[in-house]
């Protein structure tokens, strides 16, 4: 139990610093900054009680906002995907009930992991860019940014998950 808490604490701080000091400044093709910190939502253990998970996700989002001066946008988006993670996971697995204690993302097939990550990523990015631009006339910009940034986020998080987490 302690081990899991420690793991989560390290992951929280690691993802926060990775995001604000490195990924916010990579500027692929001049403007794409992947938002890999949402890997927090993919990796947090799936449990029946979700209060702590929701609160921690919110805190991670607001921390990112503090660093990148985006004022609540990231907190809003990450809380949203944190809440809808379970229903989306169920839909991806085509199951109506999960074995909460045993569930591990790594035991899924690569296709399902990518599908799961992709759905959450695109929802998250779409919210972030919609709130940031906040105008219907910029819809094309919003969608293109969502797609391009999303592709890099998915790529990096998938590689990160397959390389840096232990298979059980």
């Amino acid at each position: 139990m302690n081990n899991i808490a420690l793991n989560n604490a390290i992951r929280f701080i690691g993802l926060l610093f990775l995001q604000v000091f490195i990924l916010n400044h990579v500027n692929i093709f001049g403007y794409i900054n992947p938002m890999v910190y949402i890997a927090w939502v993919f990796l947090y253990p799936v449990r029946k009680t979700r209060s702590l998970f929701l609160i921690l996700s919110f805190l991670l989002g607001i921390s990112i906002d503090f660093f990148s001066d985006s004022g609540g946008i990231n907190a809003f988006a990450i809380t949203f995907i944190a809440y809808f993670r379970l229903p989306i996971l169920m839909a991806v697995l085509r199951k109506s009930d999960l074995d909460y204690g045993q569930f591990n993302l790594k035991t899924l097939s690569a296709n399902k992991i990518i599908l799961f990550i992709a759905i959450l990523t695109f929802i998250h990015h779409f919210i972030v860019f919609s709130v940031e631009y906040f105008s219907f006339s910029e819809l094309l910009n919003i969608v293109s940014r969502t797609v391009f940034t999303g592709i890099f986020t998915i790529l990096i998080s998938f590689l990160g998950i397959t390389l840096f987490t232990k298979r059980k």
């Binding site: 979700r50 209060s51 929701l54 609160i55 919110f58 989002g61 607001i62 906002d65 004022g71 609540g72 946008i73 907190a75 809003f76 809380t79 949203f80 809440y83 709130v131």
Partner: peptide
């Protein structure tokens, strides 16, 4: 959980509006 979700989102929304 839904109520907690609403509370957190409202907080974030207030920050965004401000």
């Amino acid at each position: 959980y839904f109520l907690l979700f609403i509370v957190l989102e409202t907080l974030a929304f207030i920050v965004i509006v401000q």
